[in-house]
Simulated assay, not measured.
Amino acid sequence: MTKSDASASKRPALSLKGRALKYLAAREHSRLELTRKLAPHAESPEQVEQVLNELEGKGWLSAQRFAESLLHRKSARYGAARIQSELAQHQLPADVAREAVQALRDTEFDRAHALWVRRYGEPPATPEDRARQMRFLASRGFSGEVVRRVVRGDGLSLSEDD
């Protein structure tokens, strides 16, 4: 046993609350994520619920902050449909998810266009290129109308001089 192994074995195990705070210090988590991560370390599901209720009560665990964090991390790369699906997987309250998705829909064209410029930068030369570009944007969760407008070149010019 090395010196670091000996010191690690002497270190007390983290409490559930300590584990939860460690996860939250790294990034925002949804209640569902923390439940899944803490469950193997808890004696009962009620113990996990008690810790999560305490963290919510103190404002350390917030569905609103989690949604904002997810939008911040993913909105430049993904459309509203894809992010809405991810928010639904985290079982956030309906009003929080609806508000977040509405904010995304307002900027969907601009975000899709910026992603398209980074990836392709020029209009498609062939029908195959057009289909490829459209599939790319659609797979990222952008709406069909936004995808068509971006690939057609509607609304924004490619030059940054304008």
Rank of each mutant, 00 (worst) to 15 (best):
M1K: 01
A6N: 02
A6L: 15
S7T: 15
S9R: 12
S9N: 02
L16E: 04
G18F: 09
A20K: 08
K22M: 13
L24Q: 10
A25L: 09
S30N: 07
R31I: 01
E33V: 08
E33L: 11
T35D: 08
R36N: 08
K37S: 12
P40R: 09
P40N: 10
V48K: 01
V48G: 03
G57D: 09
K58M: 06
G59L: 10
L61Y: 07
S62M: 11
A63S: 15
Q64P: 01
A67Y: 06
A67P: 02
E68F: 03
S69E: 13
H72D: 13
S75A: 10
R77K: 11
R77I: 03
G79T: 08
A81D: 13
A81C: 03
I83H: 09
Q89N: 14
L92T: 03
P93Q: 01
A94G: 00
A100Y: 02
A100G: 05
A100P: 02
V101S: 01
Q102R: 12
A103Y: 00
L104R: 04
L104T: 06
D106Q: 14
D106V: 14
T107A: 13
E108N: 02
E108S: 05
A114V: 00
W116D: 03
W116K: 02
R118T: 05
G121Q: 05
E122P: 00
E122L: 05
P123A: 15
P123G: 14
P124I: 07
A125F: 03
A125S: 14
T126N: 01
P127S: 09
E128R: 13
R130F: 01
Q133G: 03
M134F: 00
A138N: 06
R140W: 02
R140C: 14
S143Q: 10
E145V: 12
V146K: 01
V147R: 06
R148E: 11
R149S: 15
G153E: 08
G153P: 08
G155L: 09
S159Q: 08
D162S: 06
